[in-house]
Deep mutational scan, measured.
Amino acid sequence: DVEPGKFYKGVVTRIEKYGAFINLNEQVRGLLRPRDMISLRAENLNVGDEIIVQAIDVRPEKREIDFKYIP
């Protein structure tokens, strides 16, 4: 289970104008929005990159997770 405030290692699987999709594993995926990329620009991300993200909002009923990148 993903808990708000905890840090996780994930892999960038898709990049859109509104953010990057980060997979923690095959069943868990969330969104890293540009406003939550402190000191990281979306254009510096590539599909396949491994990054550490913090879960900031977890909505299990919608199967949605928002992440924040903190260097």
Rank of each mutant, 00 (worst) to 15 (best):
N46H: 15
N23P: 00
I56D: 02
K6V: 08
R29M: 13
E3H: 12
I52P: 01
R59E: 03
A42Q: 12
P71M: 12
Y69W: 10
D1A: 13
N46L: 10
N44G: 13
G48T: 01
E61L: 09
K17R: 13
L40Y: 05
I70A: 09
N46I: 09
V28P: 02
V11H: 05
K68A: 15
D66I: 15
D1Y: 14
K6W: 05
G10P: 00
N25W: 10
A55Y: 04
E61R: 08
T13L: 03
G19S: 04
G5H: 05
E61D: 14
K6G: 07
K17Y: 12
N44I: 09
G30F: 08
F21D: 01
P60E: 07
F7Y: 11
A42Y: 15
Y69H: 06
Q54E: 05
Y18L: 07
L24K: 00
V47W: 03
L40F: 09
G5E: 03
K68L: 10
P4I: 15
Y18M: 07
E50V: 15
Q54S: 03
P34R: 15
D57F: 12
A55N: 01
I52K: 03
F67H: 03
L45H: 04
Y8E: 00
F7T: 04
Q27Y: 14
R33S: 06
K9M: 09
I22L: 03
P34G: 12
P60G: 08
M37V: 07
A55R: 02
A20R: 01
I65F: 07
R14L: 07
K9H: 10
I52H: 05
I15L: 09
I38W: 06
K6I: 07
E43W: 13
K68E: 05
K17P: 13
I52T: 10
F67V: 04
N44M: 14
I38R: 11
N25Q: 06
P4N: 08
F7H: 04
G30N: 02
P71D: 11
V53G: 00
I52F: 08
I51G: 00
V58H: 05
V12M: 01
F7L: 07
K62Y: 08
P60W: 13
G10Q: 00
A42R: 12
K62C: 11
P34M: 14
I15E: 00
R41N: 10
D36T: 04
R35G: 10
L45V: 10
A55P: 02
M37E: 03
E61F: 06
I70T: 09
V58A: 04
P4Q: 10
E43G: 12
Y69G: 03
Q27H: 15
E26D: 14
D49R: 04
A42I: 15
I70R: 06
V11Y: 11
N44C: 15
A42S: 11
I70W: 13
I38K: 11
N25C: 11
R59M: 04
K6P: 02
G10H: 01
R29S: 12
T13G: 04
K62S: 11
R14P: 00
V11T: 11
I70E: 08
F7V: 05
L24N: 00
D66A: 09
K6N: 07
N46Y: 10
Q27M: 12
T13C: 09
V47L: 10
Q27G: 12
A55F: 07
M37Y: 06
V58M: 05
F67E: 03
K62I: 08
E43F: 13
R63Y: 10
K6M: 09
I65K: 03
V47C: 05
N44W: 14
V28G: 04
E50A: 10
I51M: 04
E64W: 14
R14V: 06
P60S: 09
A42K: 14
D1F: 15
I38Y: 08
V28W: 15
V28L: 13
K62F: 09
P4G: 05
R29K: 09
R35N: 08
S39D: 14
P34S: 14
L40Q: 05
N23D: 10
L45P: 00
N25I: 07
I22G: 01
L40S: 06
E61S: 11
N46W: 10
V47G: 00
L31M: 08
F21P: 00
N46K: 15
D49P: 01
G30Y: 04
V12L: 04
V28H: 07
Q27A: 12
R41E: 09
M37G: 06
L40M: 11
L24P: 01
I51E: 00
E64H: 11
V2W: 06
I38A: 12
V47A: 03
G10T: 01
A20L: 12
L31S: 02
K62G: 06
N23F: 10
M37S: 05
D1K: 13
R59P: 02
D36Y: 11
V2Q: 03
V58Q: 04
I65H: 04
V11E: 02
R35I: 09
R14G: 07
D49M: 14
E64G: 07
V12I: 14
D57I: 11
V28E: 04
P71N: 09
S39N: 14
R35A: 10
K62E: 08
Q54T: 05
N46R: 15
Y8H: 00
